[in-house]
Simulated scan of single mutants.
Amino acid sequence: MTSTMPTASLSIDQRTGIRHLMDLAFLGGFDDDDFDHALGGLHFLVEEHGTLVAHAAVVQRSFLHGGRAYRCGYVEAVAVHPDRRGQGFAAAVMSAAESVIDRAYDLGALSASAAGRGLYVARGWLPWLGRTAVLAPDGLTFTAEDDDSTFVRPVPGGPVLDRTGTLTCDYRNGDVW
Rank of each mutant, 00 (worst) to 15 (best):
2 T>N: 10
2 T>D: 00
3 S>Q: 14
4 T>P: 00
8 A>Q: 14
14 Q>G: 07
16 T>G: 09
17 G>W: 06
17 G>L: 06
17 G>N: 12
21 L>D: 08
22 M>C: 13
25 A>C: 08
26 F>L: 06
28 G>W: 11
29 G>K: 12
29 G>C: 09
35 F>Q: 01
38 A>H: 02
43 H>Q: 14
44 F>P: 01
46 V>E: 10
46 V>C: 10
50 G>W: 11
51 T>A: 15
57 A>T: 07
58 V>Y: 00
59 V>W: 01
60 Q>G: 14
60 Q>P: 00
61 R>Q: 14
63 F>S: 07
66 G>A: 11
67 G>W: 10
70 Y>N: 03
71 R>E: 10
72 C>D: 08
73 G>Y: 03
74 Y>F: 15
82 P>I: 08
82 P>M: 09
83 D>T: 12
84 R>L: 07
84 R>P: 02
88 G>S: 09
91 A>F: 01
93 V>E: 04
94 M>F: 03
97 A>T: 02
97 A>R: 06
98 E>T: 12
100 V>W: 05
104 A>W: 00
113 S>D: 02
116 G>I: 04
117 R>E: 13
126 L>V: 13
131 R>Y: 05
131 R>T: 13
132 T>C: 15
132 T>H: 10
135 L>D: 15
139 G>P: 08
148 D>A: 15
151 F>K: 04
151 F>N: 04
151 F>M: 15
154 P>Y: 06
154 P>E: 11
154 P>S: 09
157 G>Q: 07
159 P>V: 11
161 L>N: 06
161 L>A: 08
164 T>Y: 12
167 L>I: 09
169 C>R: 10
171 Y>I: 00
176 V>D: 02
176 V>P: 01
